[in-house]
């Protein structure tokens, strides 16, 4: 187990290193941040000063080495745009994104699991067919369009929910959370639902497929023959076994929601990390982009690890070994 963890950690360090090299070269190839950030009124002297101030006058490899040196001391650099430490900038916006991602995942499981179970147990009923048809819509409708439609219907036409932005926040553990206030929840519902739509469909389909497959297994037949109640067969024997693919996919999905809920965040003007990264890419704010992606890599590696650990808890056949 210890060897296994160590190996994973080493892998992640390598991935992060490779990623930072790619981002450095990529941004260098795209363009010069100073061209974008500088006031058009600035003359050539001011341009040169700005390039020096941001350290962009050095050759790329020297810029990278000095980044690496600072990174090893825990300093990922200051944003070109905001002049704040990149990491701090990201962490400030993390709670907003986390509550959105967890809200969406929560909704997805809450809605998706029962519907998927139902569709799997009664595959030929009218209700199951409706659910499956609906899940195709959830897959295929583009997020930004659904988001805009939701705003049009629930905010503009019906006036039930606020259209955009994050609601009132309360400070817990030094971070601002909005899901603890009524106003905050009202603001959270639409974007979370918007993000959840795709996930709901995913969970429904995975659950249904799992149920259909497991119901035919011998151990289920045996459990039935033993005279166990249908409820016990479904919720203990079937349910536990279908959870493995669901946990894997939901875990990965949670990661990508945290990292890349860019579309939903910009449609709903949600001040989270997704918006930060897209804004940063637009102005080539390299320190923020690098810090962000490094953090995301770290997060994915952690989630993968947690998923693996969850496997071994759910399925006694899985052993974590360092092979």
């Amino acid at each position: 187990m210890a060897v296994y963890l160590l190996r994973r950690l080493l892998q992640s360090a390598l991935v992060m290193l490779a990623m930072s090299v790619i981002v450095f070269i990529g941004i260098y190839a795209i363009g010069n941040p100073v061209e974008i950030l500088i006031s058009p009124e600035a003359d050539q002297m001011e341009r040169e000063r700005a390039i020096r101030a941001l350290g962009l006058d050095l050759p790329l490899w020297m810029q990278y080495l000095s980044f690496l040196k600072n990174a090893l001391q825990g300093d990922l650099g200051r944003s070109f745009v905001f002049n704040e430490p990149a990491l701090q900038l990201i962490l400030q916006r993390m709670p907003a994104t986390l509550e959105l991602a967890f809200g969406a995942t929560f909704i997805a499981l809450l809605v998706g699991l029962p519907l998927g179970l139902y569709a799997g147990l009664k595959p030929n009923s009218f209700g199951a067919k409706t659910v499956m048809a609906g899940s195709i819509l959830g897959f295929s409708l583009p997020t930004f369009w659904v988001g805009l439609m939701m705003i049009m219907v629930f905010a503009v036409q019906l006036g039930w929910l606020p259209s955009t932005g994050r609601g009132q926040t309360v400070e817990v553990l030094g971070l601002r959370w909005s899901f603890l206030t009524w106003d905050g929840l009202q603001h959270l519902i639409m974007p979370a639902m918007n993000l959840a739509l795709f996930k709901i469909s995913l969970v429904i389909r995975l659950t249904r497929a799992g149920v259909r497959e497991t119901m035919l297994m011998d151990y289920v037949k045996f459990a039935r023959a033993k005279g166990l109640s249908p409820a016990r067969v479904t919720y203990v024997h079937v349910f536990k076994n279908i959870l493995i693919p669901v946990v894997t996919v939901v875990g990965l999905e949670l990661g990508s929601t945290i990292a890349f809920s860019v579309v939903t965040e910009s449609v709903f003007a949600w001040p989270g990390m997704g918006k930060l990264i897209i804004d940063s890419i637009n102005v080539l704010d390299r320190p923020v982009i690098v810090a962000y992606l490094m953090m995301i890599v770290l997060m994915f590696i952690t989630i993968n690890l947690l998923v693996d650990l969850a496997y071994s808890a759910l399925d006694p056949r899985v052993r974590l070994e360092g092979k």
């Binding site: 805009l148 705003i151 049009m152 905010a155 503009v156 006036g159 606020p162 259209s163 955009t164 932005g165 910009s266 449609v267 709903f268 003007a269 918006k275 804004d279």
Partner: peptide, 18 residues
């Protein structure tokens, strides 16, 4: 003074009265 970068979101916010 809110920053809402997305064009449609700004218009929707005005129409919704936010």
């Amino acid at each position: 003074y809110r920053i809402v970068v997305n064009d449609s979101a700004r218009t929707a916010g005005l129409l919704a009265g936010d």
